[in-house]
Amino acid sequence: MSLSLDIDLLRSFVAISEARSLSRAASRVGRTQSALSQQLKRLEEIVEQPLFQRTGRGVLLTAHGERLLTHAQRILRLHDEAMADLSAKGLSGTIRFGCPDDYAAVFLPYLLRQFASQHPSVLVEVICAPTPRLLQQWDKHALDLALISLPDGAPDETIIRREPLVWVGCPGTETADFDPLPLALSSPDTLDHLAARASLDRAGRGYRIAYASDSLAGLTALVRSGQAIAVLTRTAVPADLCILDTTATLPALPSVGISLKLGRSTPLSEAFAEHTRRSLPLL
Rank of each mutant, 00 (worst) to 15 (best):
M1W: 06
S2A: 11
S2C: 03
L3W: 15
S4R: 12
D6G: 02
I7Q: 09
V14T: 12
V14E: 05
I16F: 03
R20D: 09
S21M: 11
S23V: 14
S23P: 00
R24C: 02
A25E: 01
S27K: 12
R28I: 08
V29Y: 03
V29M: 04
Q33T: 13
S34D: 14
Q38F: 09
L40M: 15
R42V: 05
R42I: 04
V47H: 07
V47D: 04
E48D: 12
L51N: 05
Q53D: 13
T55M: 08
T55Y: 06
G56Q: 09
R57E: 10
R57A: 10
L60H: 01
L61C: 01
L61E: 15
L61W: 02
L61T: 01
T62Y: 07
G65R: 01
G65S: 05
R67L: 14
R67K: 12
L69I: 01
A72F: 02
L76D: 03
R77A: 15
L78Q: 14
H79T: 13
H79A: 06
A82V: 09
L86W: 08
S87C: 05
A88I: 06
A88D: 08
I95H: 00
G98H: 02
C99H: 05
C99I: 15
A104C: 08
A105D: 12
V106F: 11
F107I: 11
P109G: 04
L111P: 00
R113E: 15
A116N: 10
A116L: 01
H119T: 04
V124E: 02
C128I: 09
A129R: 10
P130R: 11
R133W: 00
L135H: 07
Q136M: 09
W138L: 13
L143W: 05
D144M: 00
L145W: 01
A146E: 00
S149R: 08
D156C: 02
E157H: 12
E157S: 14
T158R: 10
I160S: 06
R161Y: 08
R161G: 02
E163V: 11
L165V: 05
C170V: 13
C170F: 03
E174T: 08
E174I: 03
F178L: 08
F178K: 08
P182Y: 04
L183H: 08
S187D: 10
S187A: 15
P188M: 10
T190G: 04
T190K: 01
L194W: 02
A198E: 15
L200P: 09
L200I: 06
D201E: 15
R202S: 12
A203D: 13
G204E: 11
G204K: 04
R205G: 11
G206N: 10
G206E: 12
Y207H: 12
R208N: 07
Y211A: 12
L216Y: 12
A217Q: 12
G218D: 07
G218W: 07
A221H: 14
R224T: 12
G226W: 09
A228L: 11
I229T: 04
I229C: 04
A230V: 02
V231D: 02
A236C: 09
A239Q: 15
D240K: 05
L241D: 03
C242E: 15
L244A: 11
T246R: 05
T247I: 02
A248T: 14
A252G: 08
G257E: 04
G257T: 11
G257Q: 03
L260K: 07
K261Y: 06
K261E: 10
G263A: 12
R264N: 13
L268S: 07
A271Q: 07
A273N: 06
T276H: 01
T276S: 09
R278Q: 14
